[in-house]
Design a protein around this nucleic acid. Structure first.
Lengths: 120, 120
DNA sequence: TGCAAGCCTGCACACCTGTGCAGGTGTCAG
DNA sequence: CTGACACCTGCACAGGTGTGCAGGCTTGCA
């Protein structure tokens, strides 16, 4: 089990076996990078509040989200643009109102098992 | 069920009932802020790789973590300092070696149900 | 058609943060 | 005692990012 890439093979290691296990645990670099970007979207209190509201409540309009979170509507709009570009939410037009909802199952699971699961 | 704070009571709302549901879903502001900071720590590929390695493999030294992730040891040290200050990891000295391990159960759950759970 | 509501965009500002390098401290082996 | 190793720290740089404001666009209602 020689998972150490060639460009690091000459480095000293304390426990070579565990290093290989760790490399296997990390897995694909692209996968890790994609998840880091996902977590970056959750790393802002405003966006996290929006996602929690959408996760539990269902389709909501920008104005209502602004009132619920205490943000101003341009900030909500800007946040939703990022979340929509990342594929986490989608919006459906209903007259002059656009209702947004959470569509990413992985994020929903993280919210449920993480943020909502560890509420004291 | 009037959960709308007084300073936003004069705002227009599309669906007042859902706004209250959303406010309840968001919960305590401090709780959300604390989780946003947690997610910020996961939002860097280097730190995320370190946490994945520690989560699956167990106690690991800085040098081994550097080899496993491809980072330089000052970067690993800097990342571990942040993670330790946040209470996510702890290190135990063994001679001149310090082995780190993941101690935050909430983060472990997020890694298991999120990153590792959605590996295709 | 005119007006208001809902939503979006652009720009400029300050702030934070990741990165690399050089060098320092403490610990163990010979 | 001396050297090598493991780990840590400080500093300066570049880059990304959240924030606020002003204003524009589209839609629906009277």
């Amino acid at each position: 089990m020689h998972l150490v890439p060639a460009d690091r093979a000459d480095h000293r290691t304390i426990d070579g076996h565990r290093v290989c296990e760790a490399i296997a645990a990390i897995g694909d670099t692209e996968h890790v990078r994609a998840w880091a970007e996902r977590f970056a979207l959750l790393a802002d209190p405003g966006r996290l509040s929006l996602l929690l509201a959408l996760h539990e409540t269902g389709p909501l309009a920008v104005t209502d989200l602004a009132v619920a979170t205490g943000m101003r509507d341009p900030a909500v709009s800007q946040a939703l643009r990022l979340l929509r570009a990342a594929g986490l939410v989608t919006g459906e037009r209903d007259g002059r109102i656009i209702r947004y909802r959470l569509v990413d199952p992985a994020i929903a699971e993280v919210l449920a098992h993480g943020v909502l699961g560890y509420r004291d």
